[in-house]
Design a protein around this nucleic acid. Structure first.
Lengths: 111, 111
DNA sequence: AATGTTTATCGCAAATAAACGATAATTATT
DNA sequence: AATAATTATCGTTTATTTGCGATAAACATT
């Protein structure tokens, strides 16, 4: 894309919130998180069975969540055990709850 | 992209949450929401001044937020007055808070 | 040493997103 | 009717995302 020359910089909170939102911007990834919360722990294979997607695709979605810090994987050869990263999860929850707690007037653009 | 033949269907809540998350997945859009909450109401032009982006780009970000239902525009020729759509905003907030309220065990994958 | 199991990564194709400038649309004012 | 002001939309370019199959990597078991 035609990018602006100067790299725009945002507040740290803004960047962080957007990053978490991006990780959650695909329904499959929401499902993965819900599944992980329910199971508390699972292997990639469990998710591949659970989701109607190719193994490589599921692995990629897991990577997105990993990169955002929302989940963690522990090697248990040859499997990988995934779970929600509680610390970052709580941090994300806090950011979103603060964001939605912004005081917003009950207007419809002064209608 | 090579899409799966069968269109995947997700829970309604899952789709909705992902849609909101996607709308918030860009730092500029987070900034716009914050600005709107502060100002309560503003015109496209105000945001174009506020943001270091071209008018057409700002307009596009506004469209994303509009399409997701998070903001509403009222015509006040030749300007357009934008504000946060309180009803949908509250709905989104509820969905996120429920999502992050999922019971998650404090594990690091059984480490 | 060879095999099997599981998962990540690579390489590709198609779709979508992000940015821009240019143009169209809308309405008030002249 | 023409002009000015404001904003949305169009067309283009480039980057990123989503999906897949194929392959590589890691380790246990045979």
């Amino acid at each position: 894309m035609k990018r602006t020359i100067v790299s725009l910089d945002y507040e740290k909170d803004t960047e962080e919130l957007a990053r978490y939102a991006k990780a959650l911007s695909h329904p499959t990834r929401i499902k993965i998180i819900r599944y992980l919360a329910e199971q508390s722990v699972c292997f990639t294979g469990d998710l591949v069975e659970y989701l109607p997607l190719a193994q490589s695709t599921v692995s990629q979605h897991l990577k997105e969540l990993r990169d955002a810090g929302l989940i963690t994987g522990k090697v248990d050869p040859p499997k990988i055990e995934y779970c929600i990263n509680k610390e970052n999860w709580d941090n994300a929850g806090k950011l979103f709850s603060e964001f939605f707690a912004l005081p917003v007037k009950n207007n419809k653009c002064s209608i």
